[in-house]
């Protein structure tokens, strides 16, 4: 018997809260007309996703999700929105094509969701007999510097090239004051 009988219930409620936060943030991100609100939706979705990572026994990845998505990606998108235009345009097209493409998008989303749900439910996923590592931060660091050192270096080069390319693209075409 557990010392705290309600602890399982409390943890389940926290899990459902993280799940609901993620789904709600994603819905805000795609549904809002003001772009700044959809960036905030993306940030909320990332916070919920970080909660799910925590439940998947990986607080390190949860921290990284918060740092990179909320701290870097969302802030960058906010700057881009301030430099470009803030709102999704008013619907000046005809009603027919808008409804048609909205219906197509909804049908595609529902089809993908339903088929993935069916696939996840119907497949008998097997748990492995033994684990090679425990997946801790130490194991991740050792793997990064031994097995995946090449990919690690490639990622750092890709990030460097991306930063330089972003600077080069955003600079050209700027008129002198």
């Amino acid at each position: 018997m557990n010392a705290f009988p309600a602890s399982n219930l409390i943890v389940s409620v926290a899990f459902v809260f993280a799940l609901a936060t993620m789904v709600l943030g994603a819905l805000i991100a795609v549904g809002s007309r003001l772009l700044i609100r959809s960036v905030c939706g993306l940030a909320i979705c990332s916070v919920g996703l970080a909660g799910l990572y925590y439940f998947l026994h990986s607080p390190f990845l949860a921290l990284m999700e918060l740092l990179i998505y909320v701290g870097a990606v969302c802030v960058t998108v906010v700057f881009a929105i301030m430099l470009a235009e803030p709102t999704e345009p008013k619907n000046e097209e005809k009603r027919g094509p808008t409804l048609f493409w909205g219906g197509t998008a909804l049908a595609a989303a529902v089809a993908i969701f339903w088929s993935l749900w069916w696939l996840g439910k119907s497949t008998g996923w097997k748990t492995p007999a033994s684990r090679l590592t425990d997946g801790s931060v130490k194991a991740i660091g050792v793997s990064l510097l031994t097995t995946y050192s090449m990919a690690f270096e490639l990622i750092s080069v890709a990030l460097l090239v991306a930063i330089l390319g972003a600077l080069a693209i955003a600079r050209t075409g700027r008129t002198k004051p």
Binding site: L19, M22, V23, A26, L27, A29, V30, L35, S38, V39, G41, L42, C45, L52, L56, V77, A80, I81, A84, E85, E88, P89, W101, G102, T104, A105, L106, A108, A109, V110, I112, F113, L116, W117, G120
Partner: peptide
């Protein structure tokens, strides 16, 4: 978790088709 990921993917694809600005598509 699989169902949650499928839901997130479906929402993202819906937004990618539905959005009419480049920044909105990037967020999706």
């Amino acid at each position: 978790y699989l169902v949650a990921a499928a839901l997130l993917l479906a929402i993202g694809i819906y937004g990618l088709i539905r959005r009419r600005t480049l920044i909105g598509m990037l967020i999706s």
